[in-house]
Structures are given as structure tokens and as C-alpha cells.
């Protein structure tokens, strides 16, 4: 049964890379079920993240957000800061797709705080980029300029010409 769980996970990833997102969801749902049977929180966390990603490409952004929220809860439970940051970044982008810029800002700020904690300058730059855009969408031009300047500073530091 444990091997079946891993196989469903691998199968889901293969379907995902092939661009078959319906089959991706089917496989990762099975993977999730087996992870829950075993109380394997790390596998459960991976399945929620993979499901969230698949729902993004199925255009079901609200469903994707719910899966990313479970990913975030489990990342916190497992005390995995890097995964927590990644889940916040995914949620920020998903709420941008949903045009809910206040929630997007909330999650991008959470991502920014963890990126700083982890001294992840690339992550910090991306958070500032996203925050600048979300504030622009809301007409908060002062805040947008603040984050755009931070993004520029970090991009220069990391040598990101684009």
C-alpha cells in the first residue's frame, strides 16, 4: 500500500509534466488518500501542493487556493520554513489570478517576511515585485514605488538583468 502511494505520486507528476492535468488530479487524489491512511503528513503536504499546481492549469483558481492553504497548514505543522514561504508565494499569485489583491498582498507579505528570515534574496526580490504589482492594481502608488525600488535594488544585487 505504501508503494502504491509513492507510485500514484510519481504517476501524478508524470501526467503533470505531460500537461494532462485531469489525470494529474486523479493520481494525486489517490496519493493523498493513501498518505492520510498512513498518517504521512509530509506526503500529504506534497499531494496538496501538487494538486494546487494542477488546479492552476485547469483554471480552477479558487480550488487551487484551498489546496495551497492545506499545504501551508501542513508546512507550519512540519516546521518547514522554505515550504511555508513557497505556499505563501503560491497563494499570493493565486489570489492575484482571482483579482483579490488585498489577500494577494497579505500572502506576499508573509512570503517576504520568511524570505528575509531565510536570507533568500531571490525570494525577497520576487515578493517585492509581486507586492509592487498588487499595490499598483489597488492604486496605492506610494507603496508600489517603495516595493519597485526594493525590487530594483535586489535585482541589481543578484545580477538579474531582466
Amino acid at each position: 500500500r505504501a508503494a502504491q502511494g509513492r507510485t500514484y505520486g510519481n504517476l501524478g507528476n508524470a501526467y503533470y509534466l505531460l500537461g494532462n492535468f485531469q489525470k494529474t488530479v486523479g493520481a494525486h487524489e489517490q496519493r493523498l488518500l493513501i498518505a492520510k491512511e498512513f498518517g504521512d503528513r509530509a506526503a500529504e503536504r506534497r499531494a496538496y501542493c501538487n494538486l494546487g499546481n494542477a488546479y492552476i492549469f485547469l483554471g480552477q483558481f479558487g480550488v487551487a487556493a484551498e489546496h495551497y492553504k492545506r499545504t501551508l497548514q501542513l508546512a507550519r505543522l512540519l516546521k518547514d520554513k522554505a515550504v511555508e514561504a513557497q505556499a505563501c508565494y503560491s497563494l499570493g499569485n493565486t489570489y492575484t489570478l482571482l483579482r483579490d489583491y488585498e489577500r494577494a498582498i497579505d500572502y506576499h507579505l508573509k512570503h517576504l517576511i520568511i524570505a528575509r528570515e531565510l536570507k533568500d534574496r531571490v525570494g525577497e526580490g520576487r515578493a517585492c515585485w509581486s507586492l509592487g504589482n498588487a499595490h499598483t492594481a489597488l492604486g496605492n502608488h506610494q507603496d508600489a514605488v517603495h516595493f519597485a525600488e526594493k525590487h530594483l535594488e535586489i535585482s541589481r544585487e543578484t545580477g538579474d538583468k531582466s
Binding site: G9, N93, T96, R99, A137
Partner: peptide, 26 residues
């Protein structure tokens, strides 16, 4: 997938391009 400010499309599209190749490996 979106019609909004061009800068926004940039940061979200960049994320989606990366996401397309990202899987949580067993």
C-alpha cells in the same frame, strides 16, 4: 489567462512558467 496591468501579467506569468515544471517528488 488574465487581462490586467501588463506588469502584473509579468510577475504572475513568470511564476506560472516556473510552476509548469515544478513537481513535489516522492
Amino acid at each position: 489567462p488574465m487581462r490586467m496591468h501588463s506588469l502584473q501579467v509579468d510577475s504572475v506569468q513568470r511564476w506560472m512558467e516556473d510552476l509548469r515544471h515544478m513537481t513535489e517528488v516522492e
